[in-house]
Write a protein that binds this DNA or RNA. Structure first.
Length: 950
RNA sequence: GCGGGUGUGGCGGAAUUGGUAGACGCGCCAGACUUAGGAUCUGGUGCCGCUAAGGCGUGGGGGUUCGAGUCCCUCCACCCGCACCA
C-alpha cells in the first residue's frame, strides 16, 4: 500500500474533530501540563512557513506529555483587536469586526491543516465581548487598587481612603511616583469630590493623568514606550512626537522591583532575561538635595555615584526644567531662552544623534554643596533629560565622561576624587574628599549616604527606568474603558453588572476632534442620563493579551474570568513558546498583570510563564538579478557570470519574485525564458529590457545567440542571499502549498529537522525531499509485498537494539527540546530496520507511538492498520529496556597520544588489567611503539583507550 | 560604549558530564534499473596526499590535560538588545 499523506491526513483531522480527541478538562488524578503558544494577531496575510515553527514544537511537546500520562492544556486563540484591522477599515470601509472574523477563519483553517492538537473548544478572541468583559473587569480591579510599598503588594483603594481619613498622607506607604501633595486628615475631609478623585489618581494602579506621551499623528493615537522604535511607530514606521495629554496609565513601575527580582527564578534564555533587565533598568544610588543660593528652594538630583560628591563642580538642569526660569539671572536671560528655544526645536531623534555636540548655557544661578557649602554654578544642557531621574544632575567632571566633556568645553573646574591607578575597579580609593579619603568606592557610598541622611539632605534610593504604561488609545478597534465621568469630571467605574461595555457599532473610523477617538463622535453612546459622559479612549493591544493564558483555563465562564478550581489546577504555563519580538512588551505586561492578580488573590502563582523558549526565525532566500547602472531604456539585465566579468559595481540588484526562479534554493538558481516572461508581466516597466547571458541576448520574446555560441535559450543566473522572509522581498513560502505537495507530517518533521528550535535558519526548498523520502521508507517498514504485516516472530537482536536505542534517544532529546536530533534518530532507526528486514510486532508497534508526536496522522493510520482501537494519541509512550542495550562485546577506539589509531573489540566484562595487556600486544600499537616506551595506558571503561608512548 | 549570544565540511547541522569531530539530511561524484529521469536503489564524499603510509583540521594565537569543538587566558568576526540613564 502506497503512502498517500494527504488522504490520511484529511481523514484523521476529520476524525479528531468529530471525536473531540483533544478536548481536555481538569483531572485531579493526573499531573497537569500547560503548554502555550504566543497569541497570534490574525493578519490578512495568513501564516508563512516561519510561523508554525514554534507551534510544531509545542504540539510535539503537548502530544508527548499526553502520551506520558499528563493532563495537557494546549489552547489557541487570537489577539484580535489592533491597529491593522482599523487602518484597513479606514482604507476600504470594511468593518474591523468583519475583516478580523475572516482573518481568524483563515488562520483557523491553516492551523488545522497543520494537524495541531489544540482543544478548539477553548478558542478565544480578545474582540469577543464575552472575553473583553473580563479585560474590562481587570481594568476596574486596577482602578480600585493601589500599591502598598510596605506590604509590597496591591491593596484595595478603599483602605487607602480610610488611611487618608484617619491620618492624611504624611506617613503613607502607598507607591506614588508623581510627587503628590501632602495633606492632613482634616484637609482630606474638606476636599471636594473632584479634588479627592485627582489625589487618588496619584495612587491607583490604573490612573488618569496629564503626561508627556508618544503621540503618533499618522496613526492618530498615543503609543506605549515599547511600541516606539527609534522615534518611529513600531506599526507603520510613522514619526512619533512628545505631547502632553490626559491619558490612562498603568502603574507598572510599582512592580519594577519584583519584575526584576523574580526573573532569576524563571527558566528563560539568558538573553531574554537581559533584555528585560535592561528595560526595567535598576540603578542604585542616592537622592541628594541641593539648596539654591539666595533662595529658600531646594532641588533634588539622583546619582549612582554619591561617593564622588566632593568632585561636584557644577550642576546641570534639563532645558525644560521648571526651575530654570526662576533662577536665571537678568544678565543670562537672553542666552538661556535662546538655548531653550533651540533645544525644543530639535527632535528627540536628532538630539540623540548629536551626542558629541556639546552645548549648554549658564543660568547665572548658584547651588550650594550640601556638605562643603561651596557655590556651584547651575547650567542647562540638553544632555540632561527631563524625563529621566529628576531632570537635574550633579556634575562630576572627573568621573563622568559627559560631565568631563562639558567641563572641558566650558572651562569649568575638575577635581579628581577617585584614585584609579589600580586595574581592578574594586580597589579604587577616594581622594580629595575629606572624611571619605582612603575609602574604597563601595564603602564610601555607604558612608556618604549615612552622612546625608543624618543631615537630612539626602537618602539612599533605588531607581528604575521602567515607566508606567500609557493605557489609552484614541482608536476605535479596542476594548472600551469602563469608566464614566460626572459633570464635575470625576471618574466613576461602571458597576460590574454592566460589563461588558460593548463597543458601539459605527462606520466612521476616522479620528474625532482634537485627536480624540472615533468613539467620541457617537453621541448617543457617549452621553448618558444625569450629565454623565463615557470615556472614549479604548485600551491598547496589550490589554487583552496580558491575561489570555488565564482565560484558556475556563473560557466559557460568565461569572469569573476563570473558575477557582480551574485556576488551582492549571496554575500557570509550564512551557511558553514564541518569538523574541515580545521580549519587553507582552512579556512585561503579562507578568505585571499576573502579579497583580496574585496580589489580589485571583491567581495562585506569582509568575505566569515558568519556562519560555524563543523560536528562531525561518529566513528566506532573496533573489535578485543584475541591472546595468550604465544604461537604461532599454534596461540591460545580465547573468551573474557576466556581471562578475564586467565588475560588480556597474550593476545594481533588482528583486525577483521567488516563484519565477528556476532551481530556487540551489546555488545555481536562474531565470529561463518562461521566468523572464513572468518577470516582465509582473514588472511591465521593463517590457523591452535586454537579458544578457554568456550565450546570447533575450529581448522582446526573442533569443539571439551570440555568434559562435550554440545556446538556444536564455539562462540568467540570479543573485541569491539569505535574509528575511517577507512580502516585501517576494520570497514568502506558504505552508499550505508545501503541505499540498508533501503532506502535513512531512512539513512538520522537516521544520523540526532544519535545526535547533531557538536558532534562525534559512528555509531550504530542496532539503524537504530527504524527509519525504524518509517518511515513505518508514511507512514501508510496516509492509511486506504490499500488505500491512505484523508477525509474532522473535525479532533479530540488532532490531531490538535499534528499537530500544531509538526510544532512549528520542525520549532524551524531546526532554531537552532537541527536536532536530529526534528526527535524525528516526532516520537512523529506519535505515537500520530496513536492513534487518523484520515484520515483528514487538519492534514495529512501539515505533508507531514513538513517532506519533511528530507525524500524528501517519501514526494514527498505522495504528489502525495494526488493528488497534481508537486513537494512538492516548497510548502510553514506549520506554526502553536497559537490559537490551547491554552489550557483551565492546569496540574500543584505541588512541596513541590522543590520536585514534585502531579499534579493539573485546568482551564487555574483560578486566582492566587484561585489557591493558591486550592493548600492549596489539600490532598497531606495537608499530607505533617502535623505539619508544609505553608510559601509560588510560582506559575509560566503555568509552575509549589512550596509550601514552614517549 | 555597555550587556547578551554565536563562530564546526560546499550547505542545514550532530557530538548529554573533557573521551572515535563531522551523526542525520541536502548537494556533489560513481554505478544499477530504465525509452527517459528532477523517480527508485547501491556505493563514495572534511582538506592535502597516487586509491597508500601519513599529515592537517571545530574563527586566530596561547595555556591546562594522557586526551580539548567542549575548560582557562587573549584577540577577531558576525548577530541581537540597550544607549547622553545621571
Amino acid at each position: 500500500m502506497e503512502y498517500s499523506p494527504r488522504q490520511i491526513e484529511k481523514k484523521w483531522q476529520t476524525y479528531w474533530e468529530e471525536k473531540q480527541v483533544y478536548k481536555t478538562d481538569i483531572d485531579p488524578d493526573k499531573p497537569k501540563y500547560y503548554i502555550l503558544d504566543m497569541f497570534p494577531y490574525p493578519s490578512g496575510a495568513g501564516l508563512h512557513v516561519g510561523h508554525p515553527l514554534g507551534y510544531i514544537a509545542s504540539d510535539i511537546m503537548s502530544r508527548y506529555k499526553r502520551h506520558s500520562g499528563f493532563q495537557v492544556l494546549h489552547p489557541m486563540g487570537y489577539d484580535a483587536f489592533g491597529l491593522p484591522a482599523e487602518q484597513y477599515a479606514i482604507q476600504t470601509g470594511v468593518h474591523p469586526a468583519e475583516s478580523t472574523r475572516k482573518n481568524i477563519q483563515r488562520y483557523r483553517q491553516q492551523l488545522e491543516n497543520l494537524g495541531f492538537d489544540y482543544d478548539w473548544s477553548r478558542e478565544v478572541a480578545t474582540c469577543d465581548p464575552d472575553y473583553y468583559k473580563w479585560t474590562q473587569w481587570i481594568f476596574l480591579q486596577w482602578f480600585q487598587h493601589y500599591y502598598c510599598t510596605e506590604a509590597d503588594k496591591a491593596l484595595p483603594i478603599s483602605q487607602l481612603v480610610e488611611e487618608f481619613e484617619r491620618e492624611g498622607n504624611h506617613g503613607t506607604t502607598a507607591f506614588d511616583n508623581q510627587d503628590s501633595p501632602k495633606f492632613s486628615a482634616e484637609e482630606w475631609k474638606a476636599f471636594s469630590a473632584r479634588k479627592r478623585d485627582e489625589i487618588l489618581m496619584n495612587y491607583r494602579i490604573a490612573y488618569r493623568k496629564t503626561a508627556y506621551v508618544n503621540w503618533c499623528p499618522k496613526l492618530g493615537t498615543v503609543l506605549a514606550n515599547d511600541e516606539v522604535k527609534d522615534g518611529k511607530s513600531e506599526r507603520g514606521g510613522f514619526p512619533v512626537e512628545r505631547k502632553p495629554m490626559v491619558q490612562w496609565s498603568l502603574r507598572i513601575s510599582a512592580y519594577a522591583g519584583r519584575l526584576l527580582e523574580d526573573l532569576d527564578g524563571l527558566d528563560w534564555s539568558e538573553s531574554l532575561k537581559t533584555i528585560q533587565r535592561n528595560w526595567i533598568g535598576k540603578s542604585t544610588g542616592a537622592m541628594v538635595q541641593f539648596s539654591l543660593e539666595n533662595r529658600d528652594d531646594r532641588f533634588e538630583v539622583f546619582t549612582t555615584r554619591p561617593d564622588t560628591l566632593f568632585g561636584v563642580t557644577f550642576m546641570v538642569l534639563a532645558p525644560e526644567h521648571p526651575l530654570v526660569d526662576e533662577i536665571t539671572t537678568e544678565a543670562q536671560k537672553t542666552e538661556v531662552e535662546e538655548y531653550q528655544r533651540r533645544a525644543a526645536a530639535i527632535s528627540e531623534r536628532a538630539r540623540q544623534a548629536n551626542v558629541d555636540d556639546i552645548s549648554g548655557a549658564f543660568t547665572g544661578g548658584y547651588a550650594i554643596h550640601p556638605v562643603t557649602g561651596k557655590r556651584l554654578p547651575v547650567w542647562i544642557s540638553d544632555y540632561v533629560l527631563m524625563d529621566y531621574g529628576t531632570g537635574a544632575i550633579m556634575a562630576v567632571p572627573s568621573d563622568d565622561e559627559r560631565d568631563h566633556k562639558f567641563a572641558r568645553h566650558f572651562e569649568l573646574p575638575i577635581i579628581p576624587v577617585v584614585d584609579k591607578s589600580s586595574d581592578d575597579p574594586e580597589e579604587h580609593t577616594i581622594i580629595n574628599s575629606d572624611f571619605l579619603n582612603g575609602m574604597k568606592v563601595a564603602a564610601a557610598k555607604k558612608r556618604i549616604i549615612r552622612e546625608l541622611e543624618a543631615k537630612g539632605t539626602g537618602r539612599g534610593e533605588v531607581k528604575y527606568k521602567l515607566r508606567d504604561a500609557i493605557f489609552s488609545r484614541q482608536r476605535y478597534w479596542g476594548e472600551p474603558i469602563p469608566i464614566v465621568y460626572d459633570e464635575e469630571g470625576v471618574a466613576h467605574p461602571l458597576p460590574e453588572e454592566e460589563l461588558p461595555l460593548e463597543l458601539p457599532d459605527t462606520n466612521d473610523y476616522k479620528p474625532g476632534a482634537d485627536g480624540r477617538s472615533p468613539l467620541s463622535k457617537i453621541e448617543d453612546w457617549v452621553n448618558l442620563p444625569g450629565g454623565y459622559k463615557r470615556e472614549t479612549d479604548t485600551m491598547p493591544g496589550f490589554a487583552g493579551s496580558s491575561w489570555y493564558f488565564l482565560r484558556y483555563m475556563d473560557p466559557g465562564n460568565d461569572s469569573a474570568f476563570a473558575d477557582r478550581t480551574a485556576i488551582e489546577y492549571w496554575r500557570d504555563v509550564d512551557l511558553y513558546i514564541g518569538g523574541t519580538e515580545h521580549a519587553v512588551g507582552h512579556l512585561i505586561y503579562a507578568r505585571f498583570c499576573h502579579k497583580f492578580l496574585y496580589d489580589t488573590g485571583q491567581v495562585v502563582s506569582n509568575e505566569p510563564f515558568r519556562k519560555l523558549i524563543n523560536q528562531g526565525m525561518i529566513q528566506g532566500i532573496i533573489e535578485s538579478i543584475f541591472m546595468d547602472k550604465r544604461q537604461s531604456d532599454p534596461a540591460r539585465f545580465v547573468c551573474a557570470s557576466v556581471a562578475e566579468k564586467e565588475g560588480m559595481n556597474n550593476f545594481t540588484g533588482i528583486l525577483v519574485h521567488a516563484d519565477f526562479v528556476k532551481e530556487y534554493g540551489a546555488q545555481d538558481s536562474y531565470l529561463n525564458e518562461d521566468s523572464i516572461r513572468k518577470f516582465l508581466n509582473w514588472q511591465p516597466d521593463f517590457a523591452n529590457a535586454k537579458f544578457e547571458c554568456p550565450g546570447g541576448v533575450y529581448q522582446n520574446s526573442e533569443f539571439t545567440p551570440h555568434p559562435g555560441s550554440g545556446a538556444t535559450e536564455n539562462h540568467l543566473l540570479t543573485h541569491s542571499e539569505v535574509g528575511k522572509m517577507s512580502k516585501s522581498k517576494y520570497n514568502v513560502i506558504n505552508p499550505d502549498e508545501v503541505i499540498e505537495e508533501y503532506g502535513t507530517d512531512c512539513f512538520r518533521m522537516y521544520e523540526m529537522f532544519l535545526g535547533p528550535i531557538e536558532q534562525s535558519k534559512p528555509w531550504d526548498t530542496m532539503g524537504i525531499d530527504g524527509v519525504s523520502k524518509f517518511l515513505r521508507r518508514f511507512w514501508e517498514l510496516f509492509f511486506k509485498d504490499g500488505n500491512f504485516t505484523f508477525t509474532d516472530e522473535n525479532p533479530p537482536k540488532e532490531a531490538r537494539v535499534t528499537l530500544h536505542n531509538t526510544i532512549k534517544r528520542v525520549r532524551e532529546d524531546i526532554e531537552r527540546f532537541s527536536f532536530n536530533t529526534c528526527v535524525s534518530h528516526f532516520m537512523v532507526c529506519t535505515n537500520e530496520l530496513r536492513k534487518a528486514k523484520t515484520q515483528s510486532r514487538e519492534i514495529l508497534e512501539p515505533l508507531i507511538v514513538l513517532i506519533a508526536p511528530f507525524a500524528p496522522h501517519l501514526a494514527e493510520e498505522l495504528w489502525q492498520l495494526a488493528g488497534r482501537e481508537g486513537t494512538v494519541t492516548k497510548a502510553p509512550y514506549p520506554d526502553y529496556d536497559p537490559e537490551v542495550l547491554k552489550k557483551d562485546e565492546l569496540t574500543y577506539p584505541v588512541a596513541v597520544n590522543g590520536k585514534k589509531r585502531t579499534e579493539l573489540t573485546v568482551p564487555a566484562d574483560m578486566p582492566k588489567q587484561e585489557l591493558e595487556k591486550t592493548v600492549a600486544e596489539n600490532e598497531v600499537i606495537l608499530k607505533w611503539k617502535e623505539g619508544k616506551d609505553i608510559k601509560r595506558i588510560i582506559v575509560v571503561p566503555g568509552k575509549m583507550i589512550n596509550v601514552v608512548i614517549k
